Amino acid sequence: MDPVVSTEWLAQRLGSPDLRVVDGSWFMPAEARSGHEEYLRVHIPGAVFFDIDAIADLTTDLPHMLPTPEAFAQAVGALGLSREVDIVIYDSLGIRAAARVWWTLRAMGFIRAFVLDGGLKKWLAEARHVETGDVHPRAVKVAPAFDPGLVRSADEVRGLLASGGPRLVDARGAARFLGDAPEPRPGLKAGHMPGAANVPFDQVVAADGTLRPAQELTAIFEAAGVDLAKPIVTTCGSGVTASVLALALARLGRDRTAVYDGSWAEWGALADAPIVTGP
């Protein structure tokens, strides 16, 4: 099943009792934009706002790490999200943070989660109906669940580097991957994990914010030296754009791709983590 749905598909189903819409817009600090403020100004009718920095592990200084299954269940229950409905997630840029919300939901047992292809960007370009203000859904009870197969920790990444197991695929831009550009978060080393491949996330997303077709995605991953027949773990700066690659791989039938949750925000700060620069 394709992990994305079209704007036309969503428009035809808005208001259905078995559908929920989620705005997952998020921006890097340097972008000086607030996802929640922009949501209040304009959002798809009925959408609730999912804050990846708030629905997160607040006991760590790492950004938007997964919360406990219990905390997550309570938070999404308050948003009216359940496993018995289809959940369509979008963001204002096309496809970026929506993929992180999609992956988070799936890691917590929500298999009926999809990303809106093109996001709010495409929705607005098509002059579709929007609304303003906040949405106050009826809370639902959600049982905690967790799928560890979709998540990797720093220790697990160390293990796979030592064993030569799954291929790491890094979604950061080439300059950061090569160590030619500084990291946007202070105090992090530059470079990448040994043996990692580089597929910048914006390569898998078209200019209109939609996910590229399967044939193009296959060519992009293969050009980066990624064997699509073997296990893959995606990584990036903080686990957001790594989820975009996981979404792209799901379009190719690889819907069990794991994401390294801490990504470079964690790895680049570890004193003894192996790091290389250059090609």
Rank of each mutant, 00 (worst) to 15 (best):
L116M: 06
R158M: 11
G35H: 06
S238M: 05
P279K: 15
E222F: 12
S25V: 05
D57I: 02
V276E: 14
A54Q: 15
V101Y: 09
A174M: 12
A258E: 04
L93H: 12
R256Q: 14
L228W: 13
D61H: 12
A273V: 03
A207V: 09
P166R: 01
A54C: 07
G35S: 10
V76W: 03
P67D: 13
W9G: 03
S243A: 15
I52N: 12
G164K: 13
I89P: 00
E70C: 05
E84A: 15
M1A: 14
V130M: 06
L105C: 04
R33D: 11
S163H: 13
A207I: 05
R112F: 01
V276P: 07
A271Y: 05
F49V: 03
R251S: 13
L116F: 12
R185N: 08
V142I: 10
L40Y: 00
K189H: 12
T210I: 07
K189D: 07
A11N: 12
C236E: 03
L40P: 00
V199G: 02
D155S: 13
P69Q: 10
D18Y: 04
S92M: 07
V151L: 11
A207K: 13
A125D: 13
P213S: 02
W102E: 01
D208S: 06
L81W: 03
D61C: 00
G195P: 01
E38A: 07
F110V: 00
H43F: 04
R167T: 15
R100L: 06
P29K: 01
A250Q: 05
E31R: 09
R167A: 15
R83P: 07
V151I: 13
M108Y: 14
K141L: 14
M1S: 15
P194G: 10
Y39D: 02
L217A: 04
A224L: 08
L161V: 09
R251Y: 00
M28D: 03
D170S: 05
G133T: 08
L247V: 02
R172G: 02
E84N: 14
E183I: 05
L120E: 04
M193N: 00
G179L: 08
F221W: 00
Q215M: 07
A56Y: 10
A246I: 02
D18K: 06
A250C: 07
V48E: 02
V259G: 07
A98G: 11
W267A: 15
R176N: 10
D255E: 12
D202Q: 13
Y90G: 00
E126S: 09
R96V: 10
P148D: 07
L116S: 03
A181P: 09
P144E: 08
R41H: 12
N198H: 09
V204M: 01
H36V: 02
P29W: 12
T210C: 14
V5D: 03
A47R: 09
S25C: 08
R100W: 14
R33V: 09
A56I: 09
